[in-house]
Design a protein around this nucleic acid. Structure first.
Lengths: 354, 354
DNA sequence: CTGAAAGCGCTTACAG
DNA sequence: CTGAAAGCGCTTACAG
């Protein structure tokens, strides 16, 4: 195992000088630096991050806490985070966080409580105040992407506004019988993404003077997956009498499931049923799904940029900044409505107008 | 920051004793151990893994190298790996490895070359001998799951045999005009999963005396994604004259794309076209897709068990072992044919029989 | 600009 | 069974 002492010996300098030359911290003559760098390259020396972090207190490692890996949005975010972190020389330690339970506690009480990561990016989860504090008390900044983490800075789209926009799209097309397939937990977890989207839906409906169709209180919840959307869709579309003419699904995966359910029931999309999703899933175009597009890969990159800035790390400056050099956490991330073939005016509309 | 010296002081023992009590290595009286453990709990002490690994040489951290995150198979594997690693107190450092290029080189030359991981699990990638050697020379074992990594132990299903089985299923149903949608690179990367599946297809066809339908040399390659399958499907099914009656797709995602293409072209599945996939994707049941099922989550767990054994870590023993206590790398992982609605006898068969 | 020394937080022989 | 000492591989004041 080659150590820095080997490099120093080969370059004919002290360990201190070798370290300064290699880390770029402190004064070293140009000539000496070159000799040291050459020596390091010659014997294939790479500093032990463990040893370095023991003295610097920095690990060059960021923990990512994420509830799902196999859902499109989360996979994209994770890829974006990984790529950006690696480009900055950081490692990514992955914690696939369960909603709750002993495994989740263990992540906070044990894994995150050690000194192995410099910061934590929490993606699409709602950390309790206690959980967030556990991490921050150890001096590690948290960035919440899409979810919440106590009072930690939060990077997110305007879920409520975008959901409202999606619903207004259906209303503008002339639909009046509109249902919302909300994400599971939308009614209970108040500050969750699902809850915000549900609220935006209700905003638009209320403003238009419309009552939601379907479910007990007018909203059906579904697992945010294709099978989840399928099951909920079957349930929602089963009775012709109470059937909506349009559905706003809380995610594209739910929307795909609904489309499949409609197909199964022989309901034409968009002829009999209009469907709008949420996310901008990579398959949305192929299935002609109208949706609210967001950019999870870019969001991941953005979260890393924010974290690196919080850590005082120099980064590219192609992101919107506030005067203090930090990203503007109040400015929602980009979304846009992408209209495709899955939404159209209700067929009943013409009849009603006669 | 509480250090082990704080624990020692509080328990009234030396650092050495505190360390022995906490790590469980070396003799400590039961009474002393209890006092130390209590003291540690009281001040919330957790050992710094960096400091510990500096002296033990062990990091309790495993690197996972994986080419995709957002493809179902890989996401499942990753989840399985993560869960199992965490249960054993190990961290997982994620490297989303590009097929080639400077970023890939950087992972091997820099990230993996440091002393930050104890071992590497390479999922679905083919590491060059040089790449594998780079890691192994540093004393870190590699386990290849589904791909190859030089001469490192390899855990894999029998891709060739399973592909043959899939093809035989179509042949048994009476199909003679059968096409294979191979994964991109099947024809060039000799030891790749795609190549093995392609070979198994050709085995079955040759044995049945059949010629593959479609493509220049009878095989069309597709990106292993739904859009990839869609595009290739459109191309393959476009000309009625050369149209196969059955397709073996190298992955379920390709198969879903083909089914979508068939729908677009007005071809009934399975009426006009039978489709069999490969993977056991979580949506296969919903779409009635016949497939070769494998269990990526369990494979991930299995790979971790193998790695932990290689590291001399005690693990559960619910896996098949060879006499030397290591997993049996020669025994292929489980697969099974799951027949659903997407495959049936060709409609032309009855006609031909008359 | 460079080197000797101390120290980051642990664990591990080695005495006792 | 326990403690003093050394050392893992680095970096960082501090002198010079």
């Amino acid at each position: 195992m080659t150590a820095i002492s080997d490099v120093a010996r080969l370059a004919g300098v002290s360990k201190s000088t070798a370290s300064r030359a290699l880390t770029g911290r402190g004064y070293v003559s140009e000539e000496t630096r070159r000799r040291v760098v050459e020596a390091a390259a010659e014997i294939g020396y790479i500093a032990s991050p463990n040893a370095a972090s023991l003295v610097t207190g920095r690990t060059k490692n960021v923990g990512v806490v994420i509830p799902f890996i196999n859902r499109w949005f989360f996979g994209e975010v994770l890829e974006g985070i990984e790529r950006t972190l690696l480009a900055s020389g950081y490692d990514l330690t992955l914690y696939n966080l369960a909603l709750s339970g002993p495994e989740r506690d263990r992540v906070f009480d044990f894994f995150l409580a050690r000194k192995r990561v410099d910061a934590v990016i929490a993606v699409g989860v709602d950390l309790s105040d206690a959980e967030a504090e556990l991490v921050e008390r150890r001096g590690k900044p948290i960035i919440a992407l899409g979810g919440t983490a106590g009072s930690a800075p939060r990077l997110a789209i305007d879920d409520r506004g975008a959901a409202r926009l999606a619903t207004e799209h259906l209303i503008d097309l002339g639909h009046t019988r509109i249902a919302h397939l909300a994400g599971a937990g939308a009614g209970s977890a108040a500050r969750s993404v699902q809850a915000f989207r549900r609220a935006g839906f209700l905003d638009a409906m209320r403003e238009a003077g419309l009552d939601p169709v379907g479910g007990e209180d007018g909203i059906v919840e579904a697992e945010m997956t294709l099978p989840g959307g399928y099951d909920a869709g079957l349930q929602l579309l089963g009775h012709p009498a109470t059937r909506p003419t349009a559905i706003f699904a809380a995610s594209d995966e739910i929307a795909f499931g609904v489309m499949r359910a409609a197909e199964r029931l022989g309901l034409a999309v968009p002829g009999t049923l209009s469907v709008i999703g949420f996310d901008g899933h990579e398959h949305a175009e192929l299935f002609g799904l109208t949706t609210i597009e967001q950019l999870p890969g870019a969001q991941g990159r953005f979260a890393v940029d924010a974290v690196l800035r919080l850590l005082g790390e120099p980064t590219g400056d192609d992101d919107p900044l506030t005067p203090d050099g930090l990203p503007d956490f109040d400015r929602p991330l980009d979304t846009r409505l992408v209209v495709r073939g899955s939404t159209t005016a209700p067929s009943g509309r013409v009849l009603a107008a006669r």
